[in-house]
């Protein structure tokens, strides 16, 4: 039970630190900042645990399970945060339909919400900003990191029989 409680406490501490930081000032590179917060939070806790000789509420054998739990929760939060940071087209559609109430929306009305300026251009700009593509004469080309990610995505699509629909 202590392993579960401490793991939850660590995650909640990281979440609290993240909220406080964001309330003071939203960082420019939000994902990187989240990795710093969640990566550094276990450090002081580990030092305290190492320093408390003779009072091991946690055994060494608890650490792998706790690390897996904390890492898993962190990854889930990062994935969730991506949906908070950028609105997805599907949720934009759902939001527009809910606002319309019983009247509903036509495709043309939804097309006014799902536009190139709102969804396509920002994602293209993000690829350039993240260094996954580089501009050159004639258009853009993948950088080395971009090639790795594209190849990995292609391999995953092949392995899991994924047919993209975007």
């Amino acid at each position: 039970m202590p392993a579960l409680i401490v793991s939850l406490a660590l995650f909640i501490s990281a979440l609290t630190a993240h909220i406080i930081w964001w309330k003071v000032r939203v960082p420019r590179h939000q994902t990187r900042a989240l990795l710093v917060v969640f990566g550094l939070t276990p450090v002081p806790a580990s030092l305290i645990w190492l320093a408390t000789e003779g009072r091991p509420a946690l055994a060494m054998g608890d650490l792998p399970g706790m690390a897996l739990f904390y890492a898993g929760a962190t990854c889930c939060y990062l994935i969730t945060y991506a949906g908070v940071e950028e609105v997805s087209p599907s949720l934009t559609i759902m939001s527009a339909l809910e606002c319309a109430g019983t009247r509903g929306c036509t495709r043309a009305e939804l097309a006014a919400e799902v536009t190139e300026e709102r969804f396509i251009r920002p994602r293209l700009d993000a690829l350039k900003r993240e260094g996954l593509i580089q501009a050159m004469a004639g258009g853009c080309r993948l950088t080395r990191p971009g090639i790795r990610i594209a190849r990995l995505a292609t391999a995953l699509a092949c392995a899991f029989g994924i047919h993209e629909s975007a």
Binding site: F119, L127, I133, L142, R151, T154, E164, A166
Partner: peptide, 15 residues
């Protein structure tokens, strides 16, 4: 992500 991510789709188009 592989099904619906526009960025992934763009990267595959570039590849």
């Amino acid at each position: 992500l592989n099904i619906s991510s526009l960025r992934i789709r763009m990267l595959k188009a570039y590849l």
